[in-house]
């Protein structure tokens, strides 16, 4: 037990140090507003990327509806901070708003998860596309949240520290999941759904856990996004937003925590540096997606991860692991 605590001490203190830096850095004036904006965007995108990776990478489906879940989180949280409790103290209100944003999106993940029981592959991709369109058109038709014009005057509550905090939570939870019986079940579904069921994996439970967790964190990211930009409208969450997240996943690497970080960082920097291109920007990301799908569909870190991102109790690589070929066949 003591040993276990000691092992956790280093990463825990490093994470805390990161939080302190994220909290103090803006006050020092060392980073300007723009850099801070970019850093927050990296964190938000990393949450989006790792959560979509759960469904598209670990489970091997192809969801294009992630922006829809993000929209639900953004709107639910903004309703709280703008419409319902505009005067509540931000220190209490904001964490609650982000959580409720996540829960709203997570709830919406349930029907999509249930639809995935029956269909998969291309057909499920089409269902997620339909979901995205339903959310977007739905929001355009609700006067309460401003219809197509969206919501303005959202308080700027997403600080670097909060973005960092939620990013760590997302990676921690998804790592826990991936290295649990449910995570292995999710990977088994990707590899061979029939064999998974025959080996005792309740694929329905595994799919629900994957979709709900994935959409919960998309909602969290949406809430952070809304309170970073201070302005949202339905077209902030269109298919292009989903495409952006897809590029992060397939560039960084499918079924990889490290790859999700890499992909989010790379795409954020890319989109920022493409700003001068104006609307031509919209061509670059989809084009990257095409190239990736053709030449490297599993991305830079596909199916691999850095050791420090894995839990401590995962089995240590064995010393005699080097190709020991089939000389000694089992008990014959």
């Amino acid at each position: 037990m003591m040993d276990g605590i000691k092992k956790h001490l280093i990463p825990l203190s490093l994470l805390l140090l990161g939080l302190v830096v994220a909290a103090v850095l803006p006050a020092t004036g060392l980073v300007n507003d723009y850099l801070q904006f970019v850093l927050i965007s990296v964190a938000i995108n990393a949450i989006l990327c790792v959560s979509l990776n759960l469904v598209n990478g670990w489970m091997g489906e192809f969801s294009v509806g992630h922006a829809g879940f993000m929209a639900l989180g953004a709107y639910a949280s903004a309703i709280l901070t703008v419409k319902l409790f505009p005067t509540a103290p931000a220190a209490l209100l904001f964490p609650a708003a982000v959580l409720i944003g996540g829960c709203t999106a997570g709830l919406a993940g349930i029907p999509v998860g249930i639809l995935s029981f029956k269909t998969r592959g291309d057909y499920l991709a089409i269902i997620t596309l339909a979901f995205l369109m339903i959310v977007k058109s739905g929001l355009e038709n609700i006067p309460y949240t401003g219809g197509p014009r969206g919501m303005l005057g959202i308080p700027r509550l997403t600080t670097l520290a909060w973005a960092y905090f939620w990013c760590v939570v997302a990676f921690w939870v998804i790592r826990n999941l991936v290295y649990s019986k449910y995570g292995r079940g999710i990977a088994a579904i990707r590899e061979d759904e029939i064999a998974a069921e025959a080996m005792g994996v309740n694929t329905r439970t595994a799919k629900l856990v994957a979709f709900v967790t994935s959409s919960f964190f998309a909602g969290v990211a949406g809430a952070l996004f809304a309170h970073q930009l201070q302005f949202i409208n339905p077209s902030s969450f269109d298919i292009l937003k989903s495409t952006e997240i897809l590029v992060m996943v397939y560039l960084g690497g499918v079924a990889s925590l490290g790859g999700s970080l890499l992909g989010a960082g790379a795409v954020t920097i890319l989109t920022q540096s493409l700003q001068p291109l104006g609307t031509w920007r919209m061509v670059v990301l989809p084009a990257i997606l095409v190239v990736l799908m053709l030449y490297r569909p599993s991305g830079i870190m596909g199916y691999r991860d850095w050791a420090w991102l894995k839990p401590f109790f995962s089995p240590a690589p064995r010393s005699n692991k080097k190709k020991e070929t089939e000389k000694r066949e089992g008990p014959q």
Partner: peptide, 19 residues
Amino acid sequence: IRLFRQLTVLENVRIAYDS
């Protein structure tokens, strides 16, 4: 044969043991 090919030998066995 329907193994989980991309996964390790240990993971293949663990998935069944997980039940």
